[in-house]
């Protein structure tokens, strides 16, 4: 048998394109044929190596992307000014501090700092809209009452999906179901998902919404440096 035919023969064996008689013949030949053994080994190697490039690993990559944001996100760098500028920045700082003390916007810290991010559902090229797509669309249109109902249903079915839980929690906050929201968000905070500190931040905001500043502060302080919400939390703590 020619080498080329052997390659096709191996392919048909591995892919199951043989009847029983052929399989038996192949396996008998395999025992004594070194070339055929090598061909079979090469086939499996090439098949699996190519699979590394072609198979779908979106779910795994999504997980990594979440952590990348958390661990490689850059914090703003400290910029050093020239001496002459220091005076100017000093004056500016005094003005800014003055503004903060006066703080005409303070009454509405919640509105300024609430998480207004969009709920991004990974597209998987499906032509039909899933319930998750629909819920996300309602949420992004700021139709929080309807989003709450839709996300609530999904949450019951898939309570371990932290993305659903997180946005369900947010829609509860937006519709003033604050105690309910905190119950959902605390579970996320106690877990180890990418939404862990996002959840802590939103719990803080939920307390802020009912003007419980001490509770809000406690939760903001749980957010460690280097995570995405850290800068915002620090800023908000400064204003309270």
């Amino acid at each position: 048998m020619m080498t080329e035919d052997k390659i096709l023969w191996v392919a048909r064996y591995v892919e199951g394109d043989m009847d029983e008689a052929e399989i038996a013949e192949f396996e008998t030949q395999l025992k004594s044929d070194d070339e055929l053994q090598q061909n079979l080994k090469d086939y499996n190697h090439i098949h699996q190596s190519l699979k590394m490039k072609l198979a779908n690993n979106d779910e795994f990559k999504d997980t990594l992307k979440g952590f990348n944001k958390q661990y490689f996100g850059e914090e703003p760098k400290v910029i050093s000014f020239k001496p002459a500028l220091k005076w100017l920045s000093g004056i500016a700082a005094i003005l800014v501090i003055g503004l903060f003390i006066w703080a005409p916007w303070n009454a509405n810290l919640y509105d300024t700092y609430a998480d207004d991010s969009q709920m991004l559902v990974t597209e998987r090229g499906a032509a039909t809209l899933t319930d998750l797509d629909k819920a996300a669309a309602l949420y992004n249109e700021k139709n929080y009452e309807s989003a709450k109902t839709a996300l609530g249903k999904l949450y019951i079915k898939q309570s371990s999906n932290t993305m659903i839980a997180y946005y369900y929690g947010l829609s509860l906050i937006k519709t003033n179901a604050l105690d309910e929201a905190r119950k959902v968000l605390i579970v996320i905070y106690e877990g180890e998902s990418v939404f862990k500190y996002e959840a802590a931040y939103s719990i803080a905001l939920s307390y802020l919404k009912e003007d419980k500043k001490a509770d809000a502060k406690t939760w903001l302080q749980k957010i460690p440096a280097g995570t995405t919400k850290y800068e915002l939390a620090k800023e908000l703590l400064g204003k309270m």
Partner: peptide
Amino acid sequence: YGYLRKKKSECMASLIKLV
């Protein structure tokens, strides 16, 4: 399913020859 197996074998064999 049968056609898929047959076609895949042929395609994979072509690939391995190319390699």
